[in-house]
Design a protein around this nucleic acid. Structure first.
Lengths: 123, 123
DNA sequence: TTACATGCAAAACTTTTGCAACTTA
DNA sequence: TAAGTTGCAAAAGTTTTGCATGTAA
């Protein structure tokens, strides 16, 4: 656990807005001025592999990262691109439905909602 | 509607495996030999904007495209990366739960399942 | 004819990697 | 010390774009 890795993990824990690697670099470089973007990418990879972080699928541009706390879902605002966490209870009947339909064993799922946030709706 | 655009749309309709832009290029270039990859990208963008196609979020590598037929979900095999469509009925109570939790107006959602397909499970 | 589409090549962006030097445990 | 990590810069991969030419309506 190098200072660089600790700083990446701390930035990820602090920043609730699902930062990109570049966002994290900009946070971390204040505390570890000589860190490189490559090191941020390498540490994010390690943290994902070890289960401390998740890489979210990217619709466009860069991937976003998320400190793993518990299984959760996301909603993206189509107005301002803000991403907010959604917590839902697991639903075994959903899993059974899907397994019956496709013959896979289902390990996990994530739902991405899309909508309009309160602020954007007000405009 | 140019021959190039028609060929891209046809390739997308034919190919059920959620092709990448590169995959589509390789299908289309057989029929329109001088087409360029840039043109494939431009036409995919137009088709997405006009609602004939969807760009799927990418976990790694290239984006994948999908001919729009009806709202549906996906399951990805963690063994072989195969993607299979899943059809589920819409669930209004889910929408209401999410709207109450985050204050957004929900327009749509897509669930990405992850699991192991029959073939990979057999190994 | 006029607006739009194309091929090509270069550029823009994101992410990964080789390497020599340096740290961590 | 041995294994792993860093900074840097270059490379790899995907997607977009400028431009002159060509095509559709």
């Amino acid at each position: 656990m190098t200072p660089q890795r600790a700083a990446v993990l701390e930035a990820l824990s602090t920043c609730k807005h699902h930062p990109t690697a570049e966002d994290i670099y900009e946070l971390v470089v204040r505390k570890v001025p000589r860190i490189s973007l490559g090191t941020v990418y390498r540490n994010l990879q390690v943290l994902v592999d070890e289960g401390y972080a998740t890489r979210l699928p990217a619709m466009e541009g860069s991937h976003r990262y998320d400190r793993v706390v518990a299984a959760h879902h996301h909603i993206v605002c189509s107005g301002c691109s803000r991403i907010v966490d959604i917590h839902l209870e697991d639903d075994d009947s959903l899993r059974e439905t899907v397994e019956a339909q496709c013959g896979f064993v289902v390990n996990s799922h994530r739902t991405e909602f899309e909508g309009t946030c309160g602020e954007c709706a007000a405009k």
